[in-house]
Amino acid sequence: MSNTKTFVYINRKAPYGTVYALESLEVVLIGAAFEQNVKLIFMDDGVFQLTRGQDPEGIGMKNFSKTYAALGDYDINQIYIDQQSLDDRGLTIDDLQALVYEDEDDDWNEKSSIHLVNREQLSDIIESADVLLNF
C-alpha cells in the first residue's frame, strides 16, 4: 500500500520521573489504528522503560510496563534496543522484559519483537523513517 509510511519512535527517558514514557506508549497505541509501519527505538535512559519486575505501587503510579507486552497484539513488532545504552548502565538484555508477536505469515508462530542494535544500525533505522517522533 503506497499510503504506508514508516514511523520511528525514539524513547530516551526513564519511566515515572517524567511523563514521556507513558505519553509515547499512548501515542504508539493510538497510532496503531492507522496500520502504518512502526518501529520503536529504546536508547539512553529509555532502556529503563522495559526493565522486568517494575512495581510502582509505592510511588502511587500505574504499572504501565505491563502494557508493552500488548504491543504484539497491535502489530507493533519492530523494537530496537541500543546495546551501548545497556552497557553504559550496567544492564544486559536479560534485564529487559521479553516482547513477542504472533507471525500471521508463519502459522502464528510466536517470535521476538526485540532486536539488539548498535549505533550504526540505529542510524540506519532513523534514516528509514518518514516520520520521527521523539519522547
Binding site: L29, A32, A33, K62, N63, F64, K66, T67, A69, A70, D73, Y74
Partner: peptide, 15 residues
C-alpha cells in the same frame, strides 16, 4: 489485568 489497557476494537476482535 494482564496488560493494564482495554484493547482497541481491532485487537479485541482478533483476540
Amino acid at each position: 489485568e494482564e496488560y493494564q489497557i482495554a484493547p482497541a476494537v481491532r485487537v479485541l476482535t482478533k483476540a
